[in-house]
């Protein structure tokens, strides 16, 4: 233990432990965003006007909108770039693969072993998602004398297409799988481990994954059924 005078330095940021902690904090914050996003979207089921008014309120508050967007972009880019760096490093750590590799069945889960792939699906989804909705067709509507974007119509037109609804549902299931491992994993990376609370936390992660996965998928299904009936 030679370097006894070391203080907090750049090298700690690049250590394997802190890199995982950066993944953890950005991942958990994105999990928070997901919940907020789902809550807002559920207004679609309540009424078209409620959803449009909510969207209008968000985009009307420019300082809040830009701060939130900038924050999300930073969170997402840090999470993404760190994931790419970690994945490359992890592949380099075993240059020669095994002739046969079998999981024990007592450790890794489907979710834990597919994190880079589900992550990639989410990335592709995010690009198509912004393209279909935020930068999608703009319709206007007037509610209580205020002219605003009819985002409800854009969303519903998207979900009315079977491929659109199916892709959305597929990506949301991938995301649910991703967070079902990520949620618990984030706490482990920060060093939270307790014989009583950790098993609860793992269950909470799965409950959270089911909630957001089922919630978003239900919206796609709702939109598709509405489209079929129209």
């Amino acid at each position: 233990m030679s370097s006894s005078t070391q203080s907090f330095s750049r090298s700690y940021f690049l250590s394997s432990v802190v890199k995982k902690q950066i993944m953890a904090v950005t991942g958990l914050l994105l999990c928070g965003f997901l919940l907020g996003h789902l809550a807002g979207n559920l207004l679609i089921i309540i009424s078209p006007d409620a959803f449009n008014q909510y969207g209008h309120a968000l985009v009307s508050n420019k300082p809040l909108l830009y701060t939130a967007e900038a924050g999300l972009i930073v969170l997402f880019l840090v999470h993404l770039c760190m994931a790419a760096k970690l994945t490359v490093e992890n592949n380099t750590a075993r240059p020669q693969k095994y002739y046969i590799k079998q999981k024990t069945g007592r450790g890794a889960t489907f979710a834990s072993s597919t994190m880079p792939y589900t992550g990639l699906i989410i990335l592709i989804f995010l690009i198509t998602h912004l393209n279909s909705f935020k930068y999608g067709t703009i319709y206007m509507t007037t509610i209580d004398g205020v002219e605003m974007r009819d985002l409800y119509r854009t969303v519903m037109e998207f979900f009315a297409q079977p491929l659109g609804a199916a892709w959305y549902a597929f990506a949301m299931i991938a995301m649910a799988i991703h967070v079902s491992h990520g949620f618990w994993s984030a706490f482990q990376s920060f060093g939270f481990s307790h014989s009583k609370y950790t098993p609860l936390l793992r269950k909470a992660g799965i409950a959270y994954a089911i909630l957001v996965g089922a919630g978003f998928t239900a919206l796609a299904l709702y939109g598709y059924i509405q489209g079929v009936q129209a």
Partner: peptide
């Protein structure tokens, strides 16, 4: 880290 081991992804295959 210097010796080139990988990063943990909390899969617990090690424990298993």
């Amino acid at each position: 880290d210097e010796l080139g081991f990988g990063n943990c992804t909390n899969e617990a295959e090690c424990e298993a």
